[in-house]
Simulated scan of single mutants.
Amino acid sequence: MILYYHAGACSLAVHIALIEARLACKLVSINRDKRTDDGRDFIAINPRGFVPTLELDDRTVLTENLAILAYIAHQSSTLLPAEGITRWRALEATSFMTTELHGNFKPFFYSDATQAEKDKARQRLAKHFASLADQLGDKPFLLGERMTIADPYLFVMLMWAYRHGIEISQRLRAYFARMKELPSVAQALAEEGLA
């Protein structure tokens, strides 16, 4: 498999999940000009032009974090329970993060965003993070004692929150610190030059 990624982007969640699931992959970095680190046109690989993009061994290309994370869980029989409500809560939480959290960071990624747009996004993000802090409670991972596909994504969203001055609770700060110490997270951060 090949993971096309941009350092520190949402593709980091897939990178962490691949390591956690012990699935081997080659890493190929994508720059802002949509070129691979070896000079290829990324749009020829993924016409949508977004990371993460996962190219399977048969050259099939998967896109979108939720789909890729669910694929990794299915291939490895880890990160997503086979049945029960925790499976659905993991998909629910990951979907919430891909839409409500990730989407609300948009003003911070565009230079033409106004301060009013950024302030409104900060308010929404703080509200959404507070909801996830309540869901986390005193558990080590968002949904219990074991990591699910929701945890790598939440880690990335918290990393962005720190970068952009979004208010997060002490509970989420402690969770972020614990996640950062996990071998899979530390390895992914190091491999992306973020350690």
Rank of each mutant, 00 (worst) to 15 (best):
R122K: 11
E92R: 01
A93L: 00
L66S: 10
S169N: 02
F105Y: 15
A177S: 15
R87Q: 11
T60M: 13
A70K: 11
L136I: 02
S131N: 12
S76E: 07
T99K: 04
F109G: 12
R163M: 15
R89Y: 00
H128A: 09
W160T: 07
H102D: 14
P183C: 03
E117Y: 14
H102V: 14
D151K: 00
Y110P: 11
A121H: 01
K118S: 13
D112E: 15
G103S: 06
N104R: 05
K127D: 15
L125R: 00
A90S: 12
K120L: 14
P140Q: 02
L79G: 01
E100Y: 09
A73C: 12
A73P: 06
F129Q: 05
S184A: 14
T114Y: 11
L143C: 04
A113P: 10
G49M: 04
S77R: 15
D57F: 07
S184M: 10
L158A: 01
E181H: 08
V185A: 07
R178I: 10
T53H: 02
L62F: 09
P152M: 04
P183Y: 03
S77K: 07
A177D: 15
F108C: 04
I149C: 03
L80K: 02
A67W: 09
P183G: 00
H128E: 07
F109Y: 11
K180R: 12
E181R: 09
E117R: 10
K139I: 04
I85V: 14
F155Y: 09
K139C: 04
D138N: 03
L79M: 11
A150V: 05
P52Y: 01
A177M: 14
G165Y: 05
F176L: 14
R59S: 10
K118W: 04
G49H: 11
S95A: 05
I68D: 01
R89G: 08
A82T: 00
W160S: 08
P183V: 04
A133C: 02
R89P: 01
A186M: 07
T99I: 10
R146F: 13
Q75E: 10
V185P: 00
L66R: 03
E100M: 05
S95N: 05
K180G: 10
P107G: 09
A133S: 13
A161Y: 00
R171V: 07
E145F: 04
I85M: 06
R89F: 01
K106Y: 15
D134V: 02
R89T: 04
H164A: 08
T94G: 02
M157Y: 01
D151R: 00
L125Y: 00
P107K: 01
D138M: 03
Q75F: 06
L66F: 13
D58V: 15
K127G: 09
S76C: 09
T86A: 05
